[in-house]
């Protein structure tokens, strides 16, 4: 997909940083304000979608390569599972909020509080952002103006995620 005009490119170059920072804010303050991991992850992915619309697919692929996004995705899920298993190791029951109960209670309504909830939010935000980015990147390879398909079973289009 090609990009857009020079006006769109300039403005979105400034705005995408703001959107990314806003997404990080929603994730980090997820235990205090509405939002949390999933909503913040969607906002992170949408900053990359804006870049994809304004600059074109190839630019985004150079910026955040697909294998890196895939590894970030798995890392996010693994971090969430690690937080839950550490609850088992330190707290005795699976998924217990061990930081709040023993080590780091913090003060209420401050950034460092509510135990392992901010860690879970960060893990989910990372995973959701990377997954949605990969999904929309793969779907954007669809072309409506190709030739009629033959009876074969192979697909020569470079769709991400297909080896």
């Amino acid at each position: 997909m090609k990009g857009m005009t020079i006006i769109v490119k300039t403005i979105s170059g400034w705005v995408k940083v703001l959107i990314f920072l806003f997404g990080i804010n929603i994730i980090l303050f997820g235990h205090l304000t509405p939002g949390g991991g999933f909503a913040g992850g969607v906002i992170l992915a949408s900053s990359y979608v804006l870049m994809m619309l304004a600059f074109g697919r190839e630019f985004v692929e150079k910026n955040l390569p697909i294998p890196l996004a895939s590894r970030l995705d798995c890392f996010g899920a693994f971090l969430f599972a690690a937080v839950a298993i550490l609850g088992l190791v330190f707290g005795g029951t699976f998924f217990v909020n061990f930081l709040y109960q023993k080590y780091l209670p913090g003060h209420a309504l401050h950034l460092v509080s509510a135990g392992t909830i901010p860690l879970s939010n960060i893990a989910i935000g990372l995973k959701v952002g990377a997954s949605l980015f990969l999904a929309i990147f793969a779907l954007s390879a669809f072309r409506k103006d190709f030739q009629r398909p033959d009876a074969g079973g192979d697909n020569k289009r470079p769709v991400a995620g297909q080896e």
Binding site: F38, A135, A138, L139, F142, R148, P149, N155, R157
Partner: peptide, 26 residues
């Protein structure tokens, strides 16, 4: 919130299968 996330995943899979069906059947 949980149900919205689940339906997001389900819809993404549905749309991508629609696109692949269009590739095959036209």
């Amino acid at each position: 919130l949980t149900a919205i996330v689940i339906s997001l995943g389900s819809l993404a899979l549905l749309i991508s299968i629609c696109i692949r069906i269009y590739d095959k059947y036209g």
